[in-house]
């Protein structure tokens, strides 16, 4: 039951940490460094869940979610947003853009895994 996860973040450190947390939890991890790259990677894999940062160069998290959600075959992939803030307003905005849930940075690996399981079953 190895889940495939696509994690999109422009910070290498954050990608490294996501990769570490996800790989240690037994997930197959794909990494991308911004929205455009995320879409490229996405066209070659079928992840069970996507994690994305918001503020990224070239294409930010909102643009990325937009593009993902507008694609029929990706429309139902759960998307978790990485955010440094936990304010409700932000969550609402993220959700409005198509996010399934969110992970507050800095994330606790256990919580990350839990959140992933929550949206993937």
């Amino acid at each position: 039951m190895s889940l495939e996860v696509l994690a999109v973040d422009d910070s290498r450190t954050m990608r490294d940490m996501l990769n570490l947390a996800l790989s240690s939890a037994g997930f197959t991890t794909h990494l991308a460094e911004d929205g455009v790259h995320g879409l490229e990677v996405l066209s070659n894999i079928e992840p069970d869940v996507i994690i994305t940062d918001i503020n990224m160069p070239r294409m930010d998290g909102f643009g990325f979610m937009d593009a993902v959600r507008s694609e029929e075959k990706w429309g139902k992939i759960p998307i978790l947003v990485l955010t440094t803030e936990s304010a409700d307003e932000l969550k609402a905005k993220a959700r409005a853009a198509g996010a399934t849930g969110w992970i507050v940075k800095p994330f606790d690996p256990a919580k990350l895994v839990k959140a992933l399981q929550m949206v993937t079953g």
Binding site: N55, F62, G63, G75, E85, A87, K93, A94, A97, G98
Partner: peptide, 26 residues
């Protein structure tokens, strides 16, 4: 107002429409 800083949110309406249109399946 530090809380407000993370999201520079503009395309909300569009996203909603998209989501509403395409995500009806589940």
């Amino acid at each position: 107002e530090p809380e407000e800083e993370d999201f520079d949110f503009t395309p909300a309406t569009l996203s909603l429409d998209l989501a509403g249109g395409d995500l009806a399946m589940p």
